[in-house]
Nucleic acid binder design. Structure first.
Length: 1033
RNA sequence: GGUCGAUUAGCUCAGUGGUAGAGCACUGCAUUGACAUUGCAGGGGUCACUAGUUCGAACCUAGUAUCGACCACCA
């Protein structure tokens, strides 16, 4: 006999280990079976399991277990992402906390070694947590994006794209994170609205020139006309004025037409040398916004960058990598003089020249960017270049109001680094880019043509929206942790061995092949033997030593230096569906498991990952898409619909739901080692704030079932612990039902042949089981996990436990050996099918029940899915048991209505019963008497006087409880029912009386309604009769 | 500004044109026979609003209101 209760702690980890040891997670590699692959969204190596992961992986596991049971060759590909910035951040922080050197003084190699050390010790917590959840991943094939083979795939992908011109290096304006001192992609920038200011300044015209400034209203009437010697500019970032290259106005803006082409002065910096910049026209400025004139700072604003590129305006970079005003280069006066000549068109310029020019006036050099802003504003204002307005707070006539500098307080959108949280700075730097536009085209087509489908499908709009407006993808990161860019630079040289300090890139899959390329190149160029070595640190920057000639034999020595940058983490993630299967080798895994069946992920990762996998997969796998379906699931929120966040204190840790959280055992929990040590206290605190008393250990099954039951398409999940408790109870119910079966010696491992069953009860339950199986299968196939969970839940609890088990009791406790044996067999058989049916949702408890109900040689996990045929359904049995259920329910309901004591046994007669009903009475008398607590249950001609009546189908059920009832109350009870019936009947009559309905509605609907009306009228007649008899009393 | 979504019972949510549902909460009754992590019975809804399409609308269409998410934004 199994234990009285299911204790998750006693079974979950034990069973998981059994599966793992037996190799249950491995693909069958059965070539006759259909292959089925899901690649896990590789969690960050720094990650620990949160509710989103729990949902994501529960869904994948349900699909994998379901398809595995259906006989497919399943690989659920697990692994982890090296997560460049996140990991580097964690390790750097740890180094700092333990008083170590920072990474720069430590050096690249030593630092990376530290990260690997950290990875071995603390990384990958999440994989063990996934095991706690029951994830049936193919662990033996676990991959890490920085593994040797995956790194080789990354390099190959890079080289191939480079050779096709789809990867290129360019100086462009990119998002720069001043904290991490690296470029990041657009996607890693979060735009947030913050309180900001917009300052209005006057840029004086060169040489004190003046013009007539005229403003007109919509009808062309002049509203303002004055002589000005300046142009008014509005800006939210005054510190960038130092890098202005022009002022732009819209070509149609008549106000400024007189001064277009003239020069104006940037009103900041040393008075003796104010820089002059041209006033130009461009389509970009909106004449209706601000003053209509825009300062153009090409190196510090994305819009300005476009204008500057169009207009050939120089873009002066003002800041260093840390977001401080530049302090390098020549002093301001010298540089500004050059800039002046450029602005006046008197001197040519090129990118390199501009890049070297530091136009930050001496007094601002080295200031942090926000300090610089304050200083610039103060200086300009002090000097009287702020636009002045009448103080709006002043109550008097406008003319009397004092003038104050015009500064608007307004909400502005500001970019923040999603990891660092600091304000992102647009910076002009050399970076590597992927031509995403070209790669996106076939990826868009794949979805348009339905080769890859989004579920729910409306997400394709989001995908198109982004893909059709995709920007070049900046893939280089100025970090150390990641795939180093496979590019080596040699010195730019001429045939005589002369160098100019420039570099020549060699792109190759590894160092060795790059050296071969370098050697070939220089030998051809120089016509002499060439030896190649990697540039040692001590020579870095000393370009004169990069190419040297041996005076003795005339051979050359070339030093090459690998690009110091690493690739965006998502570059390697984009290759995940095929790099994990061994690409570029044509492995069996690759052949079988690409393309995958379904990608399961949350919407926030569509751009980051799904889009990139689509582009890369199609590119490298001969146009074959990486997966057929993309199932986009919900975001898990707290029960009030708020996003779970540590600061809100509403985080629920999935592992806490599995293991329980006890208010007093904080210490105990920390020793489980399931969380990152440095993270654990915070999570504890957050959960405990919300659940001060803690909560029970609900087990992985309860959590999984809850998530599945709530996983409706296209809606967020508001998770409540109560709900988890509810589904834990469901597991308990199944457990105790199995105990019941064991108690009555149910015959497990015994086949059932539907056609040889003698009892309607058994024919009925296997028919119900058949329906349930069909519903669950269809729902999972259709990604309706909530429907699948509901169908199983309802069948097990409401049909199997509440009815079948109760109905079977008289037989199991009775004397008829043959009947008893049939029930023992069907009971066990149905339970076994239930275990199978629930296994994808609740793998642990079902496997535990499987192993403990018989001596078994197999795992439930590897059994065949119960795909029952329609032959299991028997309509006669269904009708018969349907009648039994109705009859019992009706009698129970009446008993409760008229307050018959629960223990009292009541005699009941059945009036006007048909022959068929009479046969049912004979067949099921015992069980009905037992379940409805009857003293007798017989067919009769007439109802005894003083009985309480209800109607089941054609028959009136009379409860002989004259002594218990009050005639008045009984009349009231019947009237209430009649009232309800009457309302429904009227509605039906009205509908059926409507010719249009009868004429236009489908015939079966009309027939159905007619039948229903007839039924209701029959019931009404019988109840009315009963009422009439009572009234006579 | 663009896109997507939500509004159904006290709460959290299912429900793709034909009798409004679940879980939790609530009320009454039931405790030595699988299960109190239970059983039986019950109360509770103008399906946000307006108009339309339809024989028929929670569901389709248009609009309104409120809430939310994402993307892009005026220097």
């Amino acid at each position: 006999m199994i234990d009285q209760r299911f204790d998750p702690k006693a079974h979950e980890q034990r069973i998981y280990q059994r599966w793992e040891e037996a190799g249950c997670f491995r693909p069958s590699m059965d070539t006759s079976a259909e292959a089925y692959a899901i690649v896990i969204p590789p969690p960050n190596v720094t990650g620990s399991l949160h509710m989103g992961h729990a949902l994501n992986n529960t869904i994948q596991d349900i699909l994998c277990r379901f398809e595995r049971m259906r006989g497919k060759n399943v690989r659920w590909q697990p692994g982890m992402d090296h997560a460049g910035i996140a990991t580097q951040m964690v390790v750097e922080r740890q180094l700092a906390a333990s008083g170590n050197q920072d990474r720069r003084s430590m050096g690249r190699e030593a630092f990376i070694e530290k990260v690997w050390e950290w990875k071995e010790q603390s990384g990958g917590t999440i994989l063990n947590q996934l095991k706690r959840l029951g994830a049936s991943c193919d662990w033996e094939n676990t991959k890490f994006t920085l593994d040797e083979d995956l790194s080789a795939a990354v390099n190959k992908a890079f080289v191939d794209l480079y050779n096709e011109g789809l990867i290129y290096r360019a100086k462009r304006l990119v998002n720069w994170d001043p904290q991490f001192q690296t470029a990041i992609s657009n996607l890693e920038v979060e735009n947030k609205e913050v309180d900001g200011h917009m300052w209005h300044f006057k840029y004086p015209l060169a040489g004190g020139e003046t013009y007539t400034y005229v403003e007109k209203d919509a009808d062309g009437n002049v509203t303002l006309e004055e002589t000005r010697d300046y142009i008014s500019i509005a800006t939210t970032r005054p510190e960038t004025m130092l890098g202005d290259g022009a002022v732009a106005v819209h070509p149609s803006d008549e106000r400024y037409a007189p001064i277009v082409g003239k020069l104006c002065e940037i009103p900041v910096g040393p008075k003796e040398f104010r820089r002059l910049i041209p006033i130009i026209t461009d389509e970009y400025p909106d004449p209706d916004f601000g003053s209509g004139a825009v300062k153009i700072t090409g190196a510090h604003d994305f819009n300005d960058y476009q204008v500057a590129k169009r207009g050939g305006i120089p873009m002066y970079a003002l800041m260093d990598d840390k977001g401080y005003m530049r302090a390098d280069g020549e002093d301001y006066a010298a540089v500004a003089a050059v800039a002046q000549r450029i602005a006046e068109g008197k001197e040519d310029f090129d990118e390199a020249k501009i890049a070297a020019m530091n136009l930050v006036p001496d007094q601002y050099r080295g200031l942090e960017r926000f300090e610089a802003r304050n200083a610039v504003v103060a200086d300009i204002t002090a000097e009287g270049h702020a636009v002045m307005i009448a103080d709006p707070k002043h109550k008097d006539e406008e003319t009397d109001a004092p003038l104050i500098p015009y500064v608007e307080n307004k909400k502005i959108m500001q970019p923040f680094g999603d990891r660092s949280g600091v304000v992102i700075e647009p910076m002009l730097t050399d970076q590597w880019f992927v031509d995403a536009e070209t790669l996106a085209k076939p990826a868009i087509a794949a979805v348009r043509e339905g080769r890859t489908k989004f579920v729910p499908e409306n997400w394709d709009r989001t995908y198109y929206n982004w893909m059709e407006n995709i920007e070049p993808w900046c893939i280089s990161r100025q970090l150390w942790w990641g795939h180093r860019i496979p590019v080596w630079y040699g010195p730019m040289a001429d045939a005589s061995g002369g160098t100019d300090g420039g570099v020549m890139p060699f792109v190759a899959e590894n160092e060795k092949s790059s050296f071969t390329k370098v050697k070939e190149y220089y030998e051809q160029l120089l016509g002499a033997p060439v030896k190649v070595s990697l540039l040692p640190d001590r020579l870095r920057g000393k370009t004169e030593f990069y190419l040297t000639k041996d005076i003795d034999d005339g051979s050359y020595h070339v030093y090459v230096d690998q690009d110091p940058d690493v690739l965006d983490t998502w570059f390697s993630s984009g290759l995940w569906p095929f790099s994990t299967q061994g690409w570029p080798e044509q492995t069996d895994g690759l052949k079988a498991f690409y393309p995958g069946a379904t990608l399961v992920t949350a919407f926030d990762i569509i751009f980051f990952w799904v889009a990139r996998m689509m582009m890369m997969g199609i590119k490298f796998m001969d146009g074959e898409i990486p997966f057929k379906d993309v199932y986009i699931h919900a975001i898990v929120r707290d029960e009030a619909g708020k996003k779970m966040s540590k600061s809100e204190g509403n985080v629920i840790d999935p592992v806490d739901l599995i293991d329980g959280i006890d208010a007093d055992s904080l210490v105990d929990k920390r020793t489980t080692g399931l969380r990152q040590p440095e993270k654990a206290p915070q999570v504890e605190k957050a959960t405990r704030k919300r659940y001060p008393k803690g909560f029970e250990a609900y087990g992985a099954d309860a959590l999984r079932f809850t998530l599945a039951a709530m996983a409706t398409k296209g809606r967020d999940i508001n998770l409540s612990v109560d709900r988890v408790a509810g589904y834990r109870n469901f597991g308990s119910k199944l457990w105790s039902a199995t105990r019941f079966a064991q108690m009555y010696e149910a015959k497990f491992e015994t086949p059932v042949n539907p056609s040889s069953l003698g009892l309607a009860l058994n024919q009925w339950i296997i028919g119900e089981l058949y329906k349930c199986c069909a519903d669950v299968s269809e729902a999972i196939e259709d990604y309706r996990f909530n429907d699948a969970a509901d169908a199983a839940y309802h069948f097990v609890w409401d049909v199997f436990c509440d009815w079948y088990l109760e109905l079977s009791k008289p037989i199991l406790q009775g004397d008829d050996g043959a009947e008893k044996e049939e029930v023992q067999t069907v009971l066990a058989w149905t339970l076994e099918r239930i275990f199978e049916l629930l296994h994808p949702f609740m793998p642990f408890i079902t496997e535990a029940l499987w192993e403990q109900t018989a001596t078994r040689s197999d795992f439930l996990m590897l059994r065949k899915w119960p795909g029952l045929s329609e032959g299991y359904h028997n309509q006669d049995a269904a009708d018969e048991l349907g009648w039994v259920l109705k009859t019992v329910s009706q009698i129970r309901s009446v008993r409760a209505d008229v307050n018959v004591p629960a223990g009292a046994k009541v005699p009941v007669s059945l009036i006007d019963a048909s022959a068929k009903t009479a046969r049912c009475v004979e067949a099921h008398r015992d069980v009905i008497m037992r379940l409805a607590r009857l003293e007798k249950f017989d067919v009769a001609e007439t109802a005894p006087t003083g009985s309480v009546k209800t109607v089941v189908d054609e028959a009136t059920v009379a409860l002989e409880i004259a002594d218990l009832i009050d005639a008045k109350e009984e009349v009231a009870r019947l009237d209430k029912q009649l009232g309800k019936l009457g309302g429904e009947i009227t509605g039906l009559e009205k509908r059926l009386g409507n010719d249009a309905f009868v004429a236009k509605a489908p015939a079966e609907v009309v027939a159905e309604q007619r039948e229903r009306l007839a039924d209701l009228q029959g019931t009404q007649a019988k109840l009315s009769q009963a009422r009439a008899q009572l009234a006579d009393l």
